[in-house]
Design a protein around this nucleic acid. Structure first.
Lengths: 253, 253
DNA sequence: GTCAACTATATGTCCTGACAAAAAGCCGGT
DNA sequence: ACCGGCTTTTTGTCAGGACATATAGTTGAC
């Protein structure tokens, strides 16, 4: 029988009503931690919502909201008449809106940055269209070489609208662009990406320490803030021999 | 003032209580259609939830659930004390779990398929690990050449567990693999992808009508069903000169 | 013994009601 | 004229209840 028995009791579940963090979020975090640490085995049922709510002293909608947030992230599956169970496959993140710098740092690959250019220039047509500004109006241009373990990994060219951010070269080398944007109060909301490949040109090949004509992974990205304004347009090329995009997809129901 | 006036009245909103489709879903679809057709302008406020609920004869939680589903998909943004407004940027899909065949067909690029191989073979180590089966046990192997406008676009090699699906060569050529899986009752749930690039080998180059050494876009994908079992492992290579992945990312709050 | 119908169980949907918290605008004092 | 605090508006969170519906197991008839 493919129903690996429930558990659900004595999981250290319990909410703190004095805390400012919402109850449903507390519960969601505890459940996620339990899944992460294997205390909630994959495939195991979670016990019904009514009983869970009663034991925690919460109402069913609150418990449902907590579970729903895990379902939305692909950690659990609900089946009417059956119950809610933990999925078998260990899911990671569903493709976060993340920066290369953070990714490399999380992978412990000692990221470093060399700023090649940091200027203000009139916007070419393509950039102007992406950022939604007039062609020829001033935009920031930042060109960086990203290293990992002292080896070049990617060549990053970014355009940003003026007046949004103080693009200090020193800070650009010490941290990532996304981190700088977030700490300036910019709320990153969504991005439109295009990922492709092409052969390396002469200059790129030199900078990336690849032979001319080597295959490169390319990414174009326009990032929007919560209001829907474009806050960044980037053309990145990655050494295909050293880097690949990895991510998790979720089917939307 | 960056508050482009509300609208919200007379949008043709109204629910059908005799319909089996949930009320919150009806409302969400109508709002999405209104946004799609421009009847709800980007940046416009949606009017408060209480009033909207009253006008539609619904309760606030139901209206909230409808709005929330649009917020989750990045179509709207809520701000406490302000209201809910339509985002400016035109959002497409947040990277659906889609097949190349469907994508090409949606883009009206006349997809066609040539099945090169369709056999059962012992699983190599990499495939066995991805599918979660024993090394050397039998798995399906399907190798296809995907064409668009009568030109080769991609070379698709897929491994599937045996016993899941009837892999008829004729149907494989007439439709996509994902469509076949779905119509067999398999519920696609999530996938783990890795996208990279490399130079074309001799055989690949011939099949794809590219010169040897041409840059190719590569994708490896393991797809899981709702129970978390791996149902497909694919290694695809795309002609970088003809194809790029395009998708929308959403920041998770 | 087999298959259909019934029943128990769990989630899905929807309602009413209440208070908290953040944001924006109003208004008064200095 | 400026700047503080107050009020209003709106979403955020939470409770408790009711009924619908899909699933699985059990029971009953044949």
């Amino acid at each position: 029988m493919p129903k690996p028995a429930a558990d659900s009791a004595a999981l250290g579940l319990g909410v703190d009503r004095t805390s400012p963090v919402p109850l449903y979020h507390q519960l969601a975090q505890q459940l996620e931690a339990a899944i992460e640490q294997g205390r909630l085995a994959p495939g195991s049922l979670l016990g019904n919502e009514l009983e869970l709510a009663a034991r925690l002293g919460l109402s069913r909608p609150t418990v449902r909201q907590a579970i729903q947030s895990l379902v939305d992230r692909g950690l659990m599956v609900r089946r009417r008449g059956v119950g809610t169970q933990v999925v078998h496959s260990r899911v990671k993140r569903p493709l976060e809106l993340s920066s290369l710098y953070d990714d490399l740092e999380a992978a412990d690959r000692r990221p470093a940055t060399r700023v090649l250019r940091n200027t203000v220039e009139p916007a070419p047509a393509e950039v102007a269209a992406a950022l939604g500004v007039a062609e020829g109006s001033d935009v920031h241009l930042v060109e960086r070489l990203r290293l990992a373990h002292d080896e070049p990994v990617a060549l990053l060219r970014n355009h940003l609208p003026t007046g949004l951010l103080d693009l200090d070269t020193g800070r650009l080398e010490a941290t990532g662009l996304y981190r700088m944007m977030r700490s300036s109060g910019i709320v990153l909301h969504s991005a439109r990406q295009s990922v492709g490949a092409r052969a390396a040109g002469g200059d790129e090949a030199d900078l990336l320490a690849e032979p001319p004509g080597a295959p490169l992974l390319t990414m174009e990205r326009t990032t929007f803030d919560a209001g829907g304004r474009a806050v960044e347009f980037g053309c990145h090329v990655y050494r295909a021999s050293r880097y690949a995009f990895e991510f998790q997809l979720l089917a939307r129901p």
